[in-house]
Amino acid sequence: MATLSLLALVTAELGDRDMAAALRIILLPFRDQLITMGFGAICLGTVHRPIARLSLLLGDKEEAIRHYRAAITFTAQLGAHPWLAEAQIDLAELLLQGDDSVRADEAETLVVEALATARALSLHRLEELAASLLATARRKGKDAMLRTSFPEPHVRPTIRVLGTFDVTSIRGEPVRWQSRKARELLKILVSRRGTTVTRERLIDLLWPDEQLDRLYNRLAVAASTIRRAFDPAAELPPNTFVESRGDLIRLNTRLIEIDAECFMSDARAALEHALDTTARIDMLVAALDRYAGDVLIDEPDAPWALHYRREVHDTFLEAAYALALAASAKGDQLTRVDAYRRILGLDVYEQRAHEGLIHALTTLGARGQAAEAEANYMQRMRELGVNVGQARPSHSEE
């Protein structure tokens, strides 16, 4: 099987259509098997992947997509994360061929997951490829469903994911969840930032060890539970907040106030505001005031939350350091101190913030606080096994 599968990949690369047709017939009965070598010592993924490559060469794009999706489902169930990431990238590349914005949006979702896996496992080649594809997917434009018109609710439902997780309905009432899976599904959809996710992928994330064909109804029930949570009296069309079309589901973030999205929007506006230092400082402070903690801290190990958490956290750091720099340019040492303390309140090991805080306090003339900050800095670095000597930060370190 390994020899045939490798031959199929080489055939697809060389473009030999006659050989591809023959190999596809041979491999199809074994599509759900793993490609192993050396009595199982080496695994090269599932047979679905070389079949997909052959199908694409033979001009059957839809069959290739089906096999790539099967490869994703199969490797996800096995927990074979490197092969899962590779299949996600293969499918994303295929979906990005053409101008279908719905498929481009699905490709973005696949690449985001593959990128998180590649970074976590230090798969540098896959990480570079995923990063390049992510930029391409985002250039293709957002999901076509974004252009759909929905009635505006009188009161927008809210979702808080910074430092906690809670939801309020369009009536302004807190949601009390009866279904743990519905709650988890909503978190996953929030982490996708309005992009679509396939039903199969959601099922795999929610029920990884159960039979796929039995779970579509349970997924539909979970989605309906979220809709009722947002709109208890069913005053609005069912697809207003949780949209589903065919195999794709997304959260309509345009009609929902999500604290992390509000923070990201405000922070980006402040970072791009370059006309007036005072106004920029005010905007950065207002944005940072929204940041109540990292995203979905009650899901610390969920792989689907990692990319979103990192993206929002990185924006927080960028905004906080920008605030320190703007305050320094204005000679506002108190605001500098506040910016660095915000950072250290979330990460006590952020070396650059420690050094900036010491410098700001020294410049301010608060020598006692500066000495205390330096002692804390040295202690934190010792905990990391870092020998930094005496801290002598300067303006250039900002």
Rank of each mutant, 00 (worst) to 15 (best):
S5P: 03
R183H: 15
L275N: 14
Y377N: 09
Y216A: 10
E318D: 10
T240Y: 09
G246N: 06
Q88L: 04
R367Q: 15
D282P: 00
L271E: 11
V47W: 01
A22R: 09
L123W: 01
D314T: 05
W304P: 01
V312K: 01
A182Q: 04
S122L: 09
T335H: 09
M264N: 09
H81P: 07
L236Q: 01
L28H: 10
S179H: 11
A326K: 04
R119V: 00
A324D: 14
V285K: 14
V47M: 06
A64C: 01
I72R: 01
M19A: 11
R49L: 08
R125H: 14
T3K: 12
R367H: 12
A269C: 10
G356Q: 02
E272Q: 13
N217S: 14
A104Y: 08
G141N: 00
A70R: 03
E235D: 07
Q97I: 13
M381F: 07
H273M: 08
A41P: 05
I25A: 15
E184C: 08
I51Q: 04
H395S: 13
E152D: 14
L384W: 06
A70H: 04
L215E: 13
D247K: 11
K330H: 13
A20Y: 01
P153D: 03
A366F: 11
T117L: 02
L6Q: 11
I51S: 08
T278D: 15
L255D: 05
Q77R: 15
P151V: 10
T3G: 08
E350W: 13
S265H: 14
R228D: 12
R69W: 11
L306G: 10
L275M: 07
I25K: 08
E62P: 03
A70W: 05
L162N: 00
V242E: 06
T46A: 15
R192H: 07
G389I: 03
Q211K: 15
L317H: 02
T225N: 15
L110K: 01
L288M: 13
N252H: 05
A131F: 00
I25F: 08
A12W: 00
A287F: 05
G345K: 04
K140N: 15
G98Q: 02
A70F: 04
A292L: 12
D105R: 00
R290M: 11
Q178F: 09
A71D: 04
I249T: 12
C262D: 11
D105S: 12
T362N: 07
L133C: 00
R160L: 10
F150V: 03
A21N: 09
D105T: 02
V197I: 15
G79E: 01
R201D: 13
T198D: 10
L186H: 05
E200A: 07
H354A: 08
Q369I: 10
R342M: 04
G293D: 06
T198E: 15
L162R: 03
A324S: 15
R245Q: 12
E355A: 15
E350F: 14
E355C: 11
D332S: 02
A131K: 02
L215I: 02
R214V: 10
L219I: 03
L9W: 07
D289G: 08
R250I: 13
H359V: 13
L206E: 02
E272A: 07
H124F: 08
D266M: 10
G385Q: 01
L215K: 12
T164F: 06
G163D: 06
A287S: 06
L4N: 04
Y349P: 02
D213R: 12
